[in-house]
């Protein structure tokens, strides 16, 4: 094929696309002037155009179409994606390719994913799916808008009542994530007692930097990162009261990093 021939095909191709569907055949008959080779080529391009769809456009992993990177997590990069099937946005975390061949790391990725997918709590990010689109392993979860607590606290101090609200929600999430944990009855009791003594508060954007719980909030409340909750260890956790005081900056407990 010569460049000139390709240009002829291209021109007829575009003019065919501009036609109404029921007029394409007649148009091609005229445009190709009986040249069957030319007609075959144009037909092939039109067929390819119909079939190509998202070919080499935004990559899809499984049934998720990736839009952009939204951050780097501990176990890989996180992307904003659209669930083509469900028609909703999702956060897609991908296990780095270099770990795909690492059996131990892959197993840990899958174990953690399976542990969190079963959690269903208003203060825990919902995991939609754990999947594989060879060779890429992914976790698809609810997409949360808003800032982290760390971001919030670098901007402004927290009122005590706000700190209590944060602590209640995170403790509730923690209790749900670790139902077998020996500390759970105490946490649940602390949550109930605090909750009953306070008027309802509006949720806001914040999260807890330390102890080792991180949460990302959205406008209707705190959503904790479930893997973080599962890794949380009671022996390192301060009491609810201490957490509240820390958040309100009445008594700093940790040297928290920015």
């Amino acid at each position: 094929m010569t460049p000139a021939q390709l240009q002829t095909i291209k021109e007829i191709f575009h003019r065919a696309l501009d036609c109404e569907p029921d007029k394409v055949s007649a148009f091609l008959q005229t445009a190709c002037r009986g040249d069957q080779v030319l007609r075959c080529e144009v037909d092939a391009f039109l067929t390819a155009h119909r079939e190509a769809g998202n070919f080499i456009e935004a990559p899809t992993i499984g049934h998720y179409k990736i839009s952009e990177s939204i951050g780097t997590g501990g176990m890989g990069e996180v992307y904003l994606a659209t669930d083509i099937v469900a028609g909703r946005n999702a956060a897609l975390k991908l296990l780095p390719l270099r770990f795909t061949g690492d059996a131990a790391r892959l197993k840990r990725f899958e174990q953690e994913a399976h542990a969190v997918v079963a959690l269903n709590h208003p203060n825990i990010v919902t995991v939609y799916e754990i999947g594989e689109d060879h060779p890429i392993h992914y976790i698809a979860s609810e997409l949360i808008e808003g800032e982290t607590l760390r971001q919030h606290l670098t901007r402004e101090q927290m009122e005590l009542i706000e700190a209590v609200d944060v602590a209640i929600q995170v403790a509730s999430a923690l209790a749900a994530a670790q139902p077998q944990h020996p500390g759970r009855p105490k946490l649940a009791a602390a949550v109930r007692s605090i909750d009953n003594s306070l008027p309802p508060t509006n949720a806001y954007h914040a999260a807890i930097p330390r102890p080792p719980l991180r949460a990302r909030l959205q406008h209707r409340g705190i959503r904790a990162n479930a893997p973080e909750l599962l890794r949380h260890r009671q022996d390192r956790c301060q009491s609810i009261q201490q957490q509240i005081l820390y958040l309100a900056e009445l008594r700093p407990l940790f040297r928290h990093s920015a």
């Binding site: 391009f45 079939e51 080499i56 456009e57």
Partner: peptide
């Protein structure tokens, strides 16, 4: 845009619909 539409069809044929 028109170049892209055509190029995509061309590449689709060349690459056997896999990419």
């Amino acid at each position: 845009r028109r170049d892209w539409v055509f190029s995509k069809a061309w590449l689709y044929r060349e690459l056997g619909g896999v990419a």
